[in-house]
Design a protein around this nucleic acid. Structure first.
Length: 774
RNA sequence: GCCGGAGUGGCGGAAUGGUAGACGCGCACGACUCAAAAUCGUGUAUCGCAAGGUGUGUGGGUUCAACUCCCACCUCCGGCACCA
């Protein structure tokens, strides 16, 4: 049992803060602004477990800290509420996703509120709100205008279980990231966004970001820029005049001993009428089938191939070399054809060894550049990143603001008629044929109207019939720009007012889990596009990124219904109070590190807060803790700024230990309350207001540490002899070297290990250490 | 295979190249109590009665001094993957 009733404090202050609007952000910031943002959650039906609020607690501490330091803080919260789970819930229970989502949001709000988070709820947003997705649709129309959104019929990844097309980023290997089904390649009419146009800028601007190095590297690899060249190899009696190969090693062209093409390319030759033997056809078919199948990436598949009977001419020496079909050459990568140089490429070497093809060593005396210019190569930059497959054949997403006329010509819906509302349907079931459930609603799909002078579509009852686009946008659409909306959440004339954009953006600190190669790629892409059309004034959306480590269950597994190991923050708040939950989650491990929950360890944080509360009974007029107090203020200030919450708390624990053992004044105690306030807002507010008769600790100013007080009067010097620790002694701060040496001679350690011998060398680190070398 | 990150007590973890294990949990003993819980106090890397020795994944190196820097390797976690 604690000495105070945390339930009373929690509820009292949470309501009071709400009523006094102490966390409401001004429309425009003053001199100092900071925009602190959490990756907004998907409001699932299961509610929060204790892992979810970890990041929110951190941003809460950070924004309270900044507010106390005189900043105007934008710290908002919203809901990323489109997506498959709500839809699947709807299908199962025949409840409209909107209804389920609303209920879940209310539950989430209450759970977050109970933790005492300082969000400005007047700025709450929801991606499924038509007032919000109006602007998601608007961005799409702008992308289309600039030629960055286009339709394609290329085969795309199709998840047979989710019954929708997917982007490369939605895959885990060759499985659907959501459900784990192996995806198929399926030709499907698709909306695609030209993210590749921004690849170079996204790569270059990574350097400007204060992000964890690992994320930057992951993005760099995902974008996967490679510089190389393409060369034409003429074919003798082939299906086409020449085959085009891509290489990053043009300098090895003289060592090419065969050409290898993908089964896909060979199939296209057959499709266009070229005759090949049954054996070859069979090989192509089985290879294509194999490549579709599940890959175990830990094992490199065995290489197979077949000779086509065709020969190619190496453009650098007119040598006649055979053309093979090989399973290690993959359609869709590069040109789908390579020149094989077994002497300088391990894969080519394996293949050549297997099929007894020649391996030719050469002298590499020409540079890549020389080879390109001399042998009519073409310099080519390739990216691993693919254009963003942007349409989903599902119900619960943003409708496209797109119609077609009877000839199939595409028009964007006029801006004045946005948003295109997501209609009610009877069945949310997806279909097998790649049609969205929306396609079944004929009186929505067929819409009368006309084309304006600007070339956009407007509705009119006496107009011609147009057909609406029935796909919806992917889950990542809303989250690609939502952070902009918080600065101007109720604007219905523009996505964001330019003055507010300049005032608040960019996000100064962005906190969340690992979305290195999806959300953080997509949002950067859209932000750069919005920069190009003048909506935003910064080239990057998130200046600083802090990753959070997840909280595992006590058994070391992920918290999940399936394992029955979920810990609900509501229960923890009830038993220990919001402050204890907050302090414990920040103390349990370094912020960015994954750690397991411990029901016994949390008691330590609870005890700590109780001791802080009880300290007020010990207030005296003498202080023995000045140095330590000011050291702690310094440490906590620095640690919050760098997200080292665990060591900040540890420093405060050390201070409290000293305060218990020694004596301290009321002023000392109030300073402790102030630096603890961001971590434990309820308890500190209660005691602060009682003792000081002040309005709120949270709008007061952050304590400044006194540099003079941090300086110790006496320091403990470590005595080393020959590098080994042989004792300690105490001297006044900043004692001269000769004093240190004299003092060290008085120690037992010196007498024992040095005695009358003359030291070879003496190394002195002022205020710290003396090392006598013998 | 490539690219990241990490290996420290029974556990979570702390250490600008300068007393390794701060702080917390757990455990042991003691105080309070009829008793228990809570609370408080003391102890808690390891070998040794002690003096002292050994210890931060392994093996080398640099240095007066290495968890920290360099080289080689092992293990675990994450990402990418026959990308030409």
């Amino acid at each position: 049992m604690k000495s105070y009733d945390h339930k009373k404090f929690d509820v009292y202050w949470q309501e009071k803060w709400l009523n006094n609007r102490i966390y409401e952000t001004p429309k425009f910031p003053g001199l100092k602004k900071v925009y602190v943002l959490d990756m907004f959650p998907y409001p699932s039906g299961e509610g929060l477990h204790v892992g979810h609020p970890k990041g929110y607690i951190a941003t809460d501490i950070y924004s309270r800290f900044k507010r106390m330091n005189g900043f105007d803080v934008l710290h908002p919260m919203g809901w990323d509420a489109f997506g498959l789970p709500a839809e699947q819930f709807a299908i199962k229970n025949k409840i409209h996703p909107k209804v389920a989502v609303q209920k879940n949001i209310e539950n989430f709000e209450q759970q977050l509120f109970n933790i005492g988070l300082d969000y400005d709820w007047s700025r709450e947003i929801d991606t499924t709100d038509p007032k919000f997705y109006k602007w998601t649709q608007w961005i799409f129309t702008k992308l289309y205008e600039k030629g960055l959104a286009f339709e394609s019929n290329e085969p795309i990844n199709w998840c047979p279980s989710c019954k929708t097309g997917l982007a490369n980023e939605d895959l885990d290997g060759n499985r659907c990231e959501r459900c784990g089904s192996v995806v198929e390649k399926k030709p499907l009419r698709q909306w695609v966004l030209k993210i590749t146009d921004y690849a170079d800028r996204m790569l270059a601007d990574l350097d400007t970001l204060n992000w964890p190095e690992g994320v930057k590297i992951a993005q760099k690899n995902w974008i996967g820029r490679s510089e190389g060249a393409e060369f034409n190899f003429e074919l003798i009696d082939g299906p086409v005049k020449s085959v085009r190969i891509f290489t990053t090693r043009a300098d090895t062209l003289f060592g090419a001993t065969f050409v290898a093409v993908s089964a896909e390319l060979a199939q296209s030759w057959i499709n266009s009428g070229f005759k090949m033997s049954e054996e070859i056809k069979k090989y192509i078919a089985t290879t294509l089938e194999e490549q579709k199948k599940e890959n175990d990436y830990s094992v490199i598949p065995e290489k197979t191939g077949i000779f086509t009977g065709i020969y190619a001419i190496n453009p650098v020496n007119q040598e006649k070399i055979p053309v093979w079909i090989a399973n290690y050459v993959i359609g869709g990568v590069g040109t789908g054809a390579i020149m094989a140089v077994p002497a300088y490429d391990d894969r080519d070497k394996d293949f050549a060894t297997l099929y007894k093809l020649p391996i030719k060593e050469i002298s590499l005396d020409k540079t890549v550049e020389e080879m390109i210019s001399k042998f009519k190569g073409e310099k080519v930059v390739r990216y691993k990143i693919q254009d963003w497959v942007f349409a989903r054949q599902r119900y619960w997403g943003e409708p496209f603001p797109v119609v077609r006329d009877e000839k199939g010509k595409v028009y964007m819906v006029d801006e004045s008629e946005l948003p295109v509302l997501l209609p009610e349907v009877e069945s949310y079931e997806p279909t097998d044929n790649g049609e969205s459930p929306l396609a079944a609603i004929t009186d929505w799909v067929n819409v009368k109207g006309y084309i304006t002078d600007k070339g956009t579509f407007k509705q009119s009852d006496d107009g011609k019939i147009f057909i609406r686009e029935t796909n919806t946008m992917p889950q990542w659409a809303g989250s690609s720009w939502y952070y902009l909306r918080f600065a101007d959440p109720h604007n219905d004339k523009a996505l964001i007012d330019p003055a507010l954009e300049k005032a608040w953006l960019p996000v100064d600190v962005y906190v969340g889990g690992d979305h290195a190669t999806r959300h953080l790629i997509y949002a950067r892409f859209w932000h750069k596009f919005l920069y190009d059309i003048g909506v935003v004034s910064t080239i990057e959306p998130f200046s600083r990124l802090e990753f959070l480590g997840f909280i595992l269950a006590e058994d070391g597994r992920k918290m999940s219904k399936r394992w029955g190991n979920i810990i609900n923050p509501d229960d923890v708040v009830k038993e220990y109070g919001a402050d204890t939950l907050r302090v414990y989650e920040m103390f349990m491990a370094p912020f960015e590190q994954t750690a397991a929950w411990s029901t016994s360890s949390i008691k330590g944080s609870d005890k700590f807060l109780d001791r802080v509360y009880n300290l007020q009974k010990k207030i005296s007029t003498e202080s023995t803790v000045q140095t330590e107090l000011h050291k702690t203020i310094k440490k906590v200030t620095e640690d919050i700024e760098s997200f080292k919450f665990n060591t900040a708390i540890s420093a405060m624990m050390i201070l409290v230990n000293s305060m218990e053992a020694g004596s301290f004044t009321k002023e000392d105690y109030l300073l402790l309350l102030q630096i603890l306030a961001p971590f434990a807002p309820h308890l500190t507010e209660q005691v602060w207001c009682e003792l000081k008769n002040d309005k709120s600790v949270h709008i007061g100013s952050w304590p400044k540490f006194d540099e003079k007080k941090i300086v110790e009067k006496e320091v403990t010097i470590t005595l080393q002899i020959g590098g080994k620790m042989r004792g300690t002694f105490i001297v006044p701060f900043q004692s001269a070297d000769n004093i240190l040496l004299e003092e060290s001679k008085k120690t037992d350690g010196y007498k024992k290990y040095v005695g009358e011998n003359e030291p070879k060398n003496v190394i002195i680190v002022p205020n710290r250490l003396i090392n006598i070398v013998i």
